[in-house]
Amino acid sequence: MRPEIAVLDIQGQFRVYTECYRADAAEKTIIMVNGSLATTASFAQTARNLYPQFNVVLYDQPYAGKSKPHNLHERPLTKEIEGQILLELIDHFNAEHIMSFSWGGAAALVALAHRPKRIEKAVISSFSPVINEPMRDYLERGSQHLGAYDRYEVGNLINSTIGKHLPSLFKRFNYKHVSTLDLHEYAQMHHHINHVLDTNTLGQIKLAKRINVPVLFMNGEWDEYTAAQDARLFADHVRQCHFSTIQCAGHFLDMEHKAACLHSKNALLEFLKPAPEPSRIRHQNVHNHPAFAI
């Protein structure tokens, strides 16, 4: 897997680093939307799960990763701006699908609410429309540490909460990444958290009601922060709603262990590339059998 790398100009305001993994046999392209402060590296396993069935596009937000040197960072980005950046990338890469992780779900909802013509399906993982008690506790402590630019406490907080089911090696990488960020990145995450704390469920639902494509909401069984049962609140508002709960997995899903990785891969491919329906047999005997709901 060797990507085509480009730094794209977005409406003359931002420069966005992108990686495009093209596969000869792929008919569709999927764009991956990072969580807060994450980079293209965060989707390494998911990209392997999707390639070569799909062309896979990864990108860094203007404030993060390899986009960071190309931008000024004068003020934090809103979810609306991140949604507009995603819409520009959808058009540039002619993408049919998008997949988001965690905070990336907010930008994905904004983009999907605009009903981009090319998009056929979307996957929103580790996201829910409500702030439950565990999430509120995590966000409030995070806001305190970020406001003080206490990088070590931020790293410890993430690993002891949403990252608690990660393997020890991933926790070390996570801690090193989070505790060595630039000050503008902490300001960006602080802005994200304060926005989430001030947002009510109605705002997320309003966006969801405008979505006109099938959406798969994928959450970990052990994720108490963006819980599977909370994500199912979208069922009353997204017209074509699907759900998958990854067994024995927390917030980071396919990064946590091999079984969760395989379950995540199967759920993604089943939704994005459903098996063709078998040809109907024209002449057959029909018997009265009871119908079972599965």
Rank of each mutant, 00 (worst) to 15 (best):
L181G: 01
C248K: 14
T18L: 02
M32N: 04
A259V: 12
A25K: 14
N266Q: 15
A38T: 10
F271D: 04
H192Q: 08
N194Q: 11
F101C: 08
L272F: 07
M218E: 01
T180R: 06
E4L: 12
V123C: 08
I205K: 05
N55F: 06
S128E: 03
M99H: 07
A41H: 11
L262M: 11
E270M: 06
A107V: 04
I85F: 07
L109E: 08
E133K: 07
Q84I: 11
A249N: 11
R15P: 00
S126A: 15
S143K: 12
R282L: 14
A148E: 14
A23M: 08
L8T: 02
Y17E: 04
E96P: 00
T18Y: 00
Y175P: 07
N200C: 12
L37S: 15
S42M: 12
F271A: 10
S102R: 07
N55L: 02
W103P: 05
N55Q: 05
H92L: 02
N194Y: 08
G65K: 03
L112D: 04
N200F: 10
L89A: 08
P276H: 13
V123L: 07
A187F: 03
A235N: 13
E120P: 06
N266W: 01
C248N: 15
N49R: 01
N94H: 14
L58W: 00
A111G: 01
T199F: 02
H283P: 07
L87R: 07
K79R: 14
F14Y: 15
G142W: 07
Q84D: 15
H191P: 01
I158N: 00
M218P: 05
K66L: 14
H73K: 05
S102K: 06
A26K: 04
L166P: 00
P278Y: 01
P274D: 04
G105I: 06
S67C: 04
Q45I: 15
E88T: 07
A108Q: 04
A148C: 05
C241D: 01
L269Y: 07
I294T: 10
A38G: 05
I31G: 00
L169K: 12
E88P: 05
D198T: 06
Y51Q: 01
L8A: 04
Q204K: 11
E224L: 05
L87A: 15
H177G: 10
D236Q: 12
N34R: 08
Y59W: 13
L37Q: 14
S143Y: 10
G35M: 12
D254Q: 11
K28H: 08
A293W: 07
A259S: 14
H191N: 13
A47M: 11
I5L: 14
T46C: 12
P129H: 06
N194G: 06
K176V: 14
R15V: 01
D182S: 15
P290V: 09
F101K: 00
G105M: 06
L50R: 00
T199G: 00
N266P: 05
L86P: 04
T78F: 03
Q13I: 02
T226K: 00
T161I: 03
F271Y: 07
Q61V: 10
N219P: 09
Q144R: 11
R280D: 11
A291P: 04
H287V: 10
R15W: 04
E140T: 10
V286P: 00
H114R: 13
L89I: 13
L202D: 15
A208V: 05
V196I: 15
R115A: 02
H191Y: 15
A64F: 15
V286F: 09
